[in-house]
Design a protein around this nucleic acid. Sequence first.
DNA 1: GCCAACGTTGGC
DNA 2: GCCAACGTTGGC
Length: 150
Amino acid sequence: MNYWLMKSEPDDFSIDDLKRKKSEPWSGVRNYQARNYMRDGMRAGDGVFFYHSSCAEPGIVGIAEVACAAYPDPTQFDPRSDYFDAGSSRAAPRWMLVDVKFKRKLKRAITLTQLKARPELRELVLVRPGSRLSVQPVTKAHWDFILDLE
DNA sequence: GCCAACGTTGGC
DNA sequence: GCCAACGTTGGC
């Protein structure tokens, strides 16, 4: 079992949105590294930290789970979508996604500030200088450590 | 294959 | 809104 962190802007799609919808196709990722993690790394049942970015208090706000293996992101084929990619095709899809399933909200968000303050998390991709990946791996040790911060 | 220009991300 | 860091694009 692997562990991940996935970012979402709460104004766009929040942990409460995921709770209400129960499961959501993680559409719109247009970064190759993030795609590769979803396509090659993720398996159903993997753990996911749901992270709120670009907001007043960025941080981990909930726990989710990978719900299925990766499949083509349908928005890449839709000319009316913001995520349309004319360079992709159904025969050779460029962008893949997984469904993300709600598990629970944290009692209290674990803020980016808190995470940065912990020397044990120095190697966490999220807090690495310059890292902007919206889908990133989390080691089991970091996963357990972060859960204990709740 | 280099690299400048441009667009995006995301914390502050 | 600013801006640093990063990724992508496209001319050469």
